[in-house]
Design a protein around this nucleic acid. Structure first.
Length: 451
DNA sequence: TGAAATGTTGGGGCG
DNA sequence: ACGCCCCAACATTTC
């Protein structure tokens, strides 16, 4: 029985339960559909990365005697057409938990033979709950149960060398764009990066992940987002590292990385159970924060012109590479929300427009964490001091010099706050706000909303 | 996965 | 020797 493998966010052949199930059913027709809902315009950096990822997947499929069919349009109509063109009798797809995807898949399943397979996460959102069946909203107890329920063996699949051949059906050409310099696309690249992280960095992750320059993070997020790397593979490698750790510090580092992977899954579960977090605060009292929302300050933040070097370096890193270091994300988010009092939704949208790993659940969760409005969020009075953060996590100023060329010649003692040493650098802006003053203002604003 | 404000302690300079 | 002050270092509380 011929099966359509409907690819959405699982651009990989290994560790793919959906592909495995489709192959067990019979010969497969791999299909990707550009859905106008996602505004599949080439202006979007993530769309370009996806398109290049499809080209890479197409190459991997051809090596196995298969091919990729690309179509555009509303999924129900396209799939109906494809079933009739190919003679396939069933559609397999990896279950996707975002609000739009759930609605879309329900509509498809009501009309067509769609089978969704859970392979994106370790645990289905309905698979982890408190004893009264309600979902966890606090990370730590969630993660404990998540770990307790880990299967002993994931049984991660490896794709067969050859796929059964099927008659070719027409495909639109896959658009080709310039490659991302910092994120070479494709499953093989993702696996390579995972292996090099596990070999070189994972045991220093506890400390190394915090340094902004030559950082010790895995930088796997763009690959995980599009499923070029299976999350379950990453979790499996984390678990192996925990068991193989040579000492307690190394073991803790690997455990910390595993926890980051669990945070991702936690936020996907949160969005599944509480879809309203997409629109507003998880905690209702924070609907009332009186944001300042100054458009000029927002522009300065977006373009890395706030006058706070570490903030500007981070924002420019994102513009240049489509990615930003995790600690830098916390620093710039705290600055936007607390120092500038700009609605976190604005920052959320800007991140979604610029990040290759832009993911509704994780991005929303991160912003609500910073704003103090979310589940298990940072307390409202936790306000990052951008100068102290810069001194702690970029002590020599290397990160700043890399992304803010105006400060390339500024010495380390002055680079975190150039204006303080009467050392205003020509061509680099003065700080748009005084942090001490902004901190007081944020505390007052939040306290007002809470009262 | 903060940082500032405030409190406590102890060493050293000094009258 | 002693009290007093200053201040660094650390701890606690407060936002």
């Amino acid at each position: 029985m011929t099966a359509i493998w409907w690819i959405r966010r699982d651009l990989r052949l290994d560790d793919n339960r959906t592909l495995q199930a489709a192959l067990e059913a019979g010969p497969i027709v791999p299909v990707y559909i550009f859905d106008p809902f996602f505004g599949a315009g080439s202006s979007n950096r993530r769309h370009r990365f996806l398109a290049n990822g499809l080209r890479s997947l197409e190459v991997d499929l051809r090596q196995r005697g298969s091919y990729l069919v690309l179509r555009r349009g509303a999924p129900v109509e396209v799939l109906r057409q494809l079933l009739s063109e190919s003679g396939a009798q069933v559609i397999y797809a990896e279950e996707d938990f975002s609000p739009y995807a759930r609605k879309r898949d329900q509509a498809v399943a009501a009309q067509l033979p769609l089978k969704c397979i859970q392979g994106q996460l370790v645990h289905h959102p309905l698979g982890i709950h408190k004893s009264d069946d309600s979902p966890y909203t606090v990370y730590t107890p969630f993660s404990k149960v998540w770990k307790y329920l880990l299967p002993d063996d994931f049984g991660i699949s490896i794709a067969p060398e050859r796929f059964p051949t099927v008659p070719k059906i027409p495909s639109e050409p896959i658009p080709e764009y310039d490659q991302e310099k910092y994120f070479p696309v494709g499953e093989a690249q993702a696996q390579k990066r995972l292996e090099s992280f596990v070999a070189d960095k994972i045991f220093d992750y506890g400390i190394g992940r915090d340094f902004l320059y030559q950082d010790g993070t895995s930088s796997l997020s763009p690959y995980i987002h599009f499923g070029m790397l299976g999350l379950r593979t990453a979790v499996d490698r984390a678990r192996q590292a925990i068991l193989a750790a040579p000492d307690e510090l190394s073991r803790k580092s690997a455990e910390t990385w595993l926890n980051e992977l669990i945070w991702r899954e936690f936020y996907i579960h949160i969005l599944y159970h509480y879809p309203h977090v997409r629109e507003g605060s998880f905690r209702p009292q924070y609907h009332r924060i009186q944001w300042r929302n100054d458009p000029d300050e927002f522009d300065a933040w977006k373009n890395g012109l706030t006058g706070y070097p570490v903030v500007d370096a981070a924002m420019r890193q994102m513009l240049a590479t489509g990615w930003m270091h995790n600690r830098a994300r916390m620093i710039v988010a705290s600055f936007l929300v607390k120092d500038l009092l700009i609605d976190w939704h604005w920052g959320e949208r800007w991140f979604m427009q610029n990040l290759l790993d832009g993911d509704l659940a994780a991005n929303n969760g991160g912003w609500q964490w910073t704003a103090g409005t979310g589940t298990d969020a940072a307390p409202y009075f936790r306000i990052f001091n951008p100068i102290l953060q810069s001194k702690k996590f970029d002590p020599n100023g290397d990160y700043i010099r890399k992304w803010v060329p105006e400060l390339a010649e500024t010495e380390s003692s002055a680079i975190h706050a150039p204006w303080q040493k009467n050392n205003q650098v020509p061509g680099y802006p003065a700080p748009i706000v005084d942090h001490k003053y902004a901190r007081e203002r944020a505390l007052a604003t939040y306290q007002h909303a809470r009262s």
